[in-house]
Design a protein around this nucleic acid. Structure first.
Length: 439
RNA sequence: GGAGAGGUGUCCGAGUACGGCUUAAGGAGCACGCCUGGAAAGCGUGUUUGGGGGGAACUCCAACGGAGGUUCAAAUCCUCUCCUCUCCGCCA
């Protein structure tokens, strides 16, 4: 196992293939345009030209210095005068120092530029500017036929004594919740069902990772350096609370070479997720939909590059499986170029039907990041038939967001009298409770 | 939190008291070749990564946990820092 210093960058910090940038910057330009980004490619090309010029000069000087070194040593040993060489090399070293400093600046600027460029969308991703342009791929099940006006989950949860947002606000603030009794147990039951299904049925290995990680780890999956304001940072340290288990799970193999025979590696974990939700003021202020802290069962795959898109379909199916077991209506949409996340090359969202809110809400997001994160985090595999190590493809998906799934169960299984029926799939986990009785 | 030990290539492991002749001895592993009916053993050759230049053969620069400093020159000296291990303290 290798250990890196905090400020050490991965050897391959370029998540975009640098060669691609140099050879065919238009591909990157086009990709950025599709995403609606304003990043300027020319800026990078200028930096790279400057970098090469500096390298050429400084390396010539260093070669000279290295060549003269032994002669200085020889003369000193022979007690001959070396002052002319010392003076000359003093000047050379001074110049080297200046150039090295400048080179470091240029490289830092280049790195910053590269690290802020989002992944290139897969060719199949539909063009679009915003979520309005995301096509629906398929529907599963049907909306429940309710012969009464359905309530929203916070109303149900509060009325049945399961949720108390006022108390949570007292303890912490807005965007927090506290749950009791049947509601707390129901959330635990959902997480159990998800973990059991992903491990026993879908072949994932269960993991309990750290919920707090360092800067390097956050950078590996793309949360940093661009999105620091979305994270909770522990004051006085360089630690961050994870916004998703994707971060620790994907970075398990950072800096490592995976044996090809082990691929695909499939991890899942239930963790709390912490998000500052900066910039979402006024959105979803009520209920459990948008919280600073929530549980999520996350799936992460390390896949062979040739199989990553099959893996994406399989992962999405694994997430869908949970809602099928719960028998809750949902649809699957594909994110368009303008709506995709920073690290993703292709993303499917699963949107669950919420009768109380009378709309579909995102409950899972499954993405293939291709080698974008693998480059940043330096995750490679050793192909059996070649000496050259290759970057793996990484995928991540929610399987599912537990809090939002709790919302879905409450709203879809509510009865006219205000009670909530426990779905069959959850009964084994509920200690005999079949209905949350109305009060 | 206190005291100590340590971090070198795929792995093990020298080198650090006296800075240059060590990108790095030695061993293991691995690859190829010879040998063999075949294999083992043996012998020979090769075996890090990133970057610059070149059509190529090739060549130059950098890297001994990380960052910085001293010096003409640092694995080696100095400072800070990260990580691992041992003992003590505290603790679910």
């Amino acid at each position: 196992m290798l250990y890196y210093g905090e400020r050490n960058e991965p050897r391959r910090y370029l998540m975009l293939d640098l060669k691609l940038m140099q050879k065919d910057p238009d591909v990157v330009r086009e990709s950025l345009a599709k995403r609606g980004s304003t990043i300027d490619v020319q800026e990078f090309l200028d930096l790279d030209e400057r970098r090469k010029a500096l390298i050429a000069e400084v390396e010539t000087l260093k070669a000279e210095r290295n060549a003269v070194g032994p002669e200085i040593a020889r003369r000193k040993k022979a007690r001959e005068d070396a002052s002319d060489l010392l003076a000359k090399m003093g000047e050379v070293s001074e110049r080297v120092k200046t150039l090295d400093a400048e080179l470091a600046e240029v490289e830092a600027a280049e790195r910053e530029w590269v690290m802020s460029v989002p992944n290139i969308p897969h060719a199949s991703v539909p063009l679009g500017a915003s979520e309005e342009d995301n096509p629906v791929l398929r529907y599963w099940g049907e909306k429940p036929a309710l012969d009464f006006a359905p309530k929203e989950h916070w109303e149900l949860g509060t009325a049945l004594g399961g949720l108390d947002f006022e108390c949570a606000a007292k303890l912490a603030g807005s965007r927090f919740s506290i749950s009791y009794g049947w509601c707390a147990r129901l959330e635990r039951a959902l997480a159990q069902l998800m973990l059991d299904t992903q491990t026993s049925v879908n072949g994932y290995t269960e993991v309990i990772p750290p919920f707090i990680v360092n800067r390097r780890t956050m950078t590996g999956t793309g949360q940093l350096p661009k999105f620091e304001e979305d994270l909770f940072k522990l004051e006085g340290t360089d630690y961050f609370l994870i916004p998703t288990a994707e971060v620790p799970l994907t970075n398990v193999y950072s800096g490592e070479v995976i044996d090809e025979a082990l691929l695909p590696v499939k991890f899942c974990a239930q963790t709390p997720c912490f998000r500052s939700e900066a910039g979402s003021y006024g959105k979803d202020t009520k209920g459990l939909i948008r919280q600073h802290q929530f549980y999520k069962v996350e799936m992460v795959n390390f896949a062979h590059p040739e199989k990553s898109y099959d893996a994406l379909e399989a992962m999405t199916a694994s997430a869908e499986k949970i809602l099928q077991l719960l028998n809750i209506h949902y649809r699957v949409i594909e994110l368009c170029t303008g709506d995709m996340g920073f690290s993703a090359a292709k993303t499917y969202d699963i949107e669950v039907w919420l009768p109380g809110q009378d709309q579909y809400r995102e409950i899972s997001s499954c993405s293939n990041c291709e080698d974008f994160q693998a480059r940043r985090a330096d995750i490679r595999f050793q192909p059996a038939d070649s000496k050259k190590k290759q970057f793996v493809h990484t995928l991540n998906g929610s399987g599912l967001a537990v809090g939002r799934c709790l919302v879905a169960v409450m709203e879809n299984y509510q009865q006219a009298d205000g009670s909530i029926v426990i779905p069959d799939a959850l009964k084994p986990y509920m200690g005999g409770l079949e209905v949350v009785p109305a009060k």
